[in-house]
């Protein structure tokens, strides 16, 4: 199978991946870079567990062919905490509000929420719900997740 060499910015660092041309961004993150924060739930765009931010926009990395990442900038959950391990206000808020139970949806939830807060620092509850409508959580019932995002928005102000 033909391999390609794809160069892009990953969590602020310039990287190059040498992977089969048919891989998705999700597979490349998990199997080439061994960044396993983004999860595969469905593999077809339905669940949001694989959400990452590309050039400022939340996307499903499971639907993104790796050649499309050439020259782009990708942010994953692994890039959120500070160098010294200080958690991002979103991570902190999810922990404090029980926005996490099994955790499978969490990195996707947080990346969708981050894309929202980067664009709209003061979102309404409706805007938060719209931003995470493509992120399924089978544990929490969403209330704590929405509260976590609200708390993080306050913290970030």
């Amino acid at each position: 199978m033909k391999k390609v060499s794809i160069s892009f910015t990953l969590n602020g660092n310039s990287v190059t991946a040498e992977v089969p041309e048919t891989w998705t961004l999700l597979k490349t993150l998990r199997e080439y870079f061994e960044l396993t924060g983004a999860k595969e739930g469905c593999g077809v765009g339905e669940c949001g567990a694989c959400t990452v931010i590309m050039d400022g926009q939340a996307i499903n990395s499971c639907l993104c062919p790796i050649p499309e990442v050439e020259g782009r900038s990708v942010d994953t959950i692994e890039g959120l905490a500070g160098e010294d391990g200080t958690l991002h206000p979103l991570q902190d808020a999810f922990l404090k509000n029980n926005g996490v139970q099994c955790g499978y949806c969490t990195s996707g939830m947080i990346m969708s929420s981050k894309a929202l807060l980067d664009q709209k620092p003061d979102p309404t509850e409706e805007e938060i719900r719209t931003a995470i409508a493509g992120n399924f959580c089978r544990c929490t019932g969403y209330v704590q997740i929405v509260e976590s995002v609200e708390m993080a928005a306050k913290e970030l102000k």
């Binding site: 765009g45 996307i59 993104c64 931003a131």
Partner: peptide, 9 residues
């Protein structure tokens, strides 16, 4: 259409 993630692409 779909979700924000879908509508973005």
């Amino acid at each position: 259409v779909g979700s924000v993630q879908v509508r973005n692409v």
